[in-house]
């Protein structure tokens, strides 16, 4: 099919008397500007859209506040317990060193994110005897490191 085969008549319609009424409607708006009134650049339906967005935003923020009011997470609760209390609990629980280490991510012990400390560790030679003594003392096997 070629373009010229298509009927060129407009498919768009206008409300009845639109062009008859338009000049008066425009004159009214211009009169408002001359009186110093602000022209409503944002049409009413856009204002409704903005109002709807504001309501959604309000409830989102309200919801977030409510979530924050809820009981703290395990990490937050643990951070409120002192190290001393935690050690006492672990001593009383009679757990062996192996049992404790089994649940610990080994990367937490071995990784060091501080580049300055990294440098200290790698440049400061440690006597192997001292390492062995520490390992024996804490019954840590080499496989964990």
């Amino acid at each position: 099919m070629k373009l010229e085969d298509i009927n060129k008549d407009s498919i768009f319609k206008v409300p009845e008397n639109y062009f008859e009424e338009f000049p008066d409607k425009l004159q009214e708006r211009i009169a408002e500007t001359r009186k110093g009134k602000a022209i409503p650049i944002i049409p009413l339906r856009r204002i409704v859209q903005f109002a709807a967005a504001a309501v959604i935003l309000f409830f989102t923020i309200y919801g977030l506040i409510k979530i924050n009011d809820q009981p703290a997470t395990i990490d937050q609760m643990l951070s409120e317990i002192s190290t001393e209390e935690l050690i006492n609990y672990l001593v009383e629980s009679d757990m062996s060193t192996e049992e404790l280490l089994a649940d610990i991510d080994i990367s937490i012990i071995t990784s060091n994110e501080d580049p300055i400390n990294d440098e200290v560790i790698t440049t400061d030679p440690i006597d192997e005897k001292i390492i062995d003594e520490i390992l024996d003392e804490y019954e840590i096997e080499m496989q964990y490191l």
Binding site: M1, I6, N7, D9, I11, F12, K13, V14, P15
Partner: peptide, 11 residues
Amino acid sequence: YISGSEIQIKL
């Protein structure tokens, strides 16, 4: 306020 034949709409 829009009404046309199928091919007019397709255009």
